[in-house]
Each structure stands twice: as structure tokens, then as C-alpha cells.
Design a protein around this nucleic acid. Structure first.
Length: 326
DNA sequence: AACACCTTCAACCGCCGCAAT
DNA sequence: TATTGCGGCGGTTGAAGGTGT
């Protein structure tokens, strides 16, 4: 049996809202609130609209302190960083941008930001993409054990030749996703990476992500990783249990050492099923390594708070945004 | 000026999670 | 435990305006 419609489709108005309707809705909500029942609201407010439509209109347009207009560079940075971390979870991203709605950010991403990003990539003959190199003056010296030592652009395997759908990067678990946002000049980008090997056990470098998930098909199963300057999100707020179980069956935590530029295993998480508080964190580390992750996460937090120059996430996005080719 | 194509973004659609029953 | 209904979310659509030819 299908669900009953939330309203009588035949008797509700659709399409753009008139100023009169806006006024009615605004005045009603300011006077009585939503009453926790959007379905009943339109009738009470004298509107021939679906409750969902009223809710959307209020949240995206009428409610106080909505910010319209151009997105700032800072907002760009936040969106990019969060998208790299959590994908197209617009409501979560919107929560980090006061005055912006998820719809706004989604539209902005789909119409502008994504294109800016694509503008930094150059397709070559075999449908791979390369990152436009930054001017030499901005290049940092590469680490000694860097896989790609040349000054030529970094090759990204199998980058989709189709325009990116809003959630493709996340959903396809593209291991090179963070590099899309990173300027080629970042040494960490190259550290210990072998993007070309589907079976490589070397995790991707999580440049912009906080603690990234899920990990790629190219890396070994689901790998959770952190980079210096990254910070820990409570992913229990971002994924439901089913998702977590799916993505984190055999969790491993990695720390990318900025000094040595190679991956270093610092702990292995127990399978998610064993977790009972819905939080991926210290409590679930195997005992032999729990202190390691605790210390490192604290260190990571400290780096963020102190802004001690190791904040690769921020630096990478800043570099990306300040790249003259951007 | 007229037409075609492109871009933007408000609004809709359908699905999901969760609380109430 | 199963069902129902609502709020919330992300993906998609299509009208309107902009731009190019």
C-alpha cells in the first residue's frame, strides 16, 4: 500500500510564490510559529499550498537572517573542504555557513563551484585528468620519497570524463578526490601515493578532508585516515548505522606523517558492529594502539587551534583558491 | 530584432529516518 | 512488531533571464 499524499494535490497551488502568499506565510509563522506541523499550517494560514512547499519557502527564502547573493572566498573554502570530507550533505555544509541554506549551497555548487573546480583540471588523450601546475615560484620542494618527482602535472587515473554530478566524487569513493582541490605544489599531495593501483594498500592522502570516509576502491577495503591539521568529526551525526557498517567493516586508521611523507599505521579499529555508542573514536581502538590515536587526534586538534602552520586542509584550499589559474 | 542556446535558482519530487500508535 | 505520517534531505526540473550569433 502506498503512502497517502501529504496534501490534496488537486487543490494546492504550485509554482512560484506571490508576494501575497509570502506575506501570509511570514505573518502567520511570526505570529504563531510553525506549531510543529507543516501539513496543517497552510490551511491555518489561509494558503492553498502544500505544507512541504510552505516549509521550503520559509526555510529557503522567508525566514530571518537568510543571506542571499555572492558567496565569499571563505564560504567557498568551507564548502570545498566539507564537500571533500562528507560529499553532498548540503544540510551539514549549510550548518557551517550561517545564513546560507542547503538549497543555496547545492545550487551554488552545481552551477558555479563545480565548474571552477573542473577549470583547474585538464583532460588528456586517455581521458585522464591532470591538475594544472602552479607557477614555479609557488612550488615547494618535493619530498625525497615522492613517487612523482618530476615537475610535470600529477596524473589522476580514471577521472570521470562526464561532468561531475554533485555527489559523484563522494559516492564513487574516488581516492583522488581531495587532490582535485589541491594545488600541485602541495608536497603532501604526492606522499606515498600510487593512485594507479587498484589494489594498493597505500591509502590516499587526505589533504582537505578531516577524517575521510568511505575510502576508495583503490585502497584496501575501507581505510580511515587523518592528516596533520585535520580534525575529528563525529561521523555518527553524518552517517546512519547502516552506512557506517557498510563502509567501516575493517577500519584502519592511518596517520600521514608530514615530516616523513609516508603513511604510518597508528591503529586498527574494531569492526563497526562492535561499537555501541555510534561513535568512531578512541574507545574502539584495539588496546595496543589506543593511546597512539588519542595522542594524535589531540595533536591534530592542537594544530588546528594553534594554527601552527600544519593545517594542510586550510592551506591546501587557500592555495587552490589563490591559484592564479583558478 | 529574432532566435537559439546557456545559466541560474526556486520549487518540486520522491525517498528515508524516526516517532507515534 | 508493523504501520502510518511527518519532517528532512538530496536530486532534478523548468521557467526566466542572460548571452551569443
Amino acid at each position: 500500500m502506498g503512502r497517502a499524499p501529504c496534501c490534496d494535490k488537486a487543490n494546492v497551488k504550485k509554482g512560484p510564490w506571490s508576494p501575497e502568499e509570502d506575506l501570509k506565510l511570514k505573518e502567520y509563522i511570526e505570529k504563531y510559529g510553525t506549531g510543529g506541523n507543516w501539513i496543517a499550517l497552510p490551511q491555518k494560514a489561509g494558503l492553498k499550498r502544500c505544507g512541504k512547499s510552505c516549509r521550503l519557502r520559509w526555510l529557503n527564502y522567508l525566514r530571518p537572517n537568510i543571506k542571499h547573493g555572492e558567496f565569499s572566498a571563505d564560504e567557498d573554502r568551507i564548502i570545498l573542504s566539507l564537500f571533500a570530507s562528507i560529499g553532498s550533505r548540503w544540510s551539514i555544509i549549510a550548518a557551517h555557513l550561517p545564513g546560507r541554506t542547503d538549497n543555496d549551497i547545492k545550487n551554488y555548487w552545481n552551477t558555479k563551484l563545480k565548474k571552477k573546480l573542473m577549470g583547474t583540471l585538464i583532460p588528456n588523450q586517455d581521458h585522464r585528468f591532470i591538475i594544472k601546475p602552479s607557477p614555479p615560484s609557488q612550488m615547494l620542494p618535493p619530498p625525497s620519497n615522492m613517487i612523482q618527482q618530476s615537475s610535470s602535472p600529477l596524473l589522476l587515473p580514471n577521472f570521470p570524463s562526464q561532468p561531475l554530478s554533485s555527489s559523484l566524487l563522494y559516492r564513487e569513493n574516488l581516492c583522488y578526490q581531495p587532490s582535485c582541490y589541491a594545488p600541485a605544489k602541495s608536497p603532501l599531495l604526492f606522499s606515498g601515493l600510487d593512485f594507479s593501483s587498484p589494489t594498493s594498500s597505500v591509502p590516499t592522502v587526505s589533504l582537505l578532508t578531516n577524517v575521510s570516509y568511505p575510502m576508495s576502491n583503490y585502497a584496501s577495503d575501507s581505510i580511515l585516515q587523518a592528516a596533520p591539521g585535520d580534525f575529528q568529526y563525529d561521523y555518527s551525526q553524518m552517517m546512519n548505522k547502516q552506512e557506517r557498517t557498510h563502509h567501516h567493516k575493517h577500519l584502519q586508521a592511518f596517520m600521514i606523517s608530514e615530516e616523513s611523507h609516508h603513511s604510518q599505521t597508528i591503529g586498527v579499529w574494531e569492526p563497526e558492529e562492535k561499537c555501541n555508542d555510534g561513535y568512531y573514536g578512541e574507545g574502539h581502538m584495539s588496546s595496543s594502539s589506543s593511546s597512539a590515536i588519542e595522542y594524535d587526534l589531540e595533536e591534530v586538534k592542537r594544530l588546528i587551534i594553534n594554527g601552527s602552520g600544519s593545517n594542510n586542509s586550510v592551506n591546501a584550499i587557500s592555495s587552490f583558491l589563490s591559484n592564479p589559474l583558478y
